[in-house]
Amino acid sequence: MTTDMVSLEGVCAGCMLLTAFFSMGRKRLPTLLRHYALSSACLAGLIVTHAVRTSHPAEYAGAVATILVKVVVIPLAILATAHRCGESLRLKPITRPVVSYALAVAAVGGAYLMSRRLPLEIGPTSPVGHIIPLWSLVFVALALIFLGFLMLIIRRDLFSQIIGFLTVENGISAFAVVALGGVPFLMEMGIFAVIGGGVLLMAVLSQQVHSLYRSHDTAILSDLID
């Protein structure tokens, strides 16, 4: 049972990283959202494997909330906002896919180096009692954070920036799961509430940007530069 859970934990973590990585070169919003939803589903899987391994049934609630909010509500809300604006769902990255992937490789490499430097315990000595090395799971979490930041830099449209922010947030959630075995239930729900609220506000603002400027390109947001 434990070995199966460890394998599943590795699969979920790997799948999270791959989906985030391959989203870097995608140009269509629905595809980008599918990648994000799949990555979030893997995060829920990671939470479940932890809940089973550590016998903490309360963590299932976190997994359910993750699926509900990040796999269903947020992608649908962003897609609905985009449809309401009536603009093309084809996004405009400022780099070509090849360059985007090359930068993504560099980001993942940076996350690898950082994860090896972080002084976190390895294996059964870690506070949560991992069997596979903790640094490898932390590496995945950091890679997601780095990829999210990269998306914020190389994408100029508002929707990609929202997804970049959400990718960063998924990385931090993954870190909480692998390093601490999750956070207290009420705190987790509070975090969900503020992240959900933040994304809702971003969706509303992106609609207002579109109604003012007839575009989602952040390059037009330059009235306030000194």
Binding site: F149, L152, V168, L205, L221, D223, L224
Partner: peptide, 20 residues
Amino acid sequence: IEAAWKYLLLCSLGISVSLL
């Protein structure tokens, strides 16, 4: 709206990093 977008995105990102 531009100010609000920058404010929300940058501060939320910053606060997310602080969560780490």
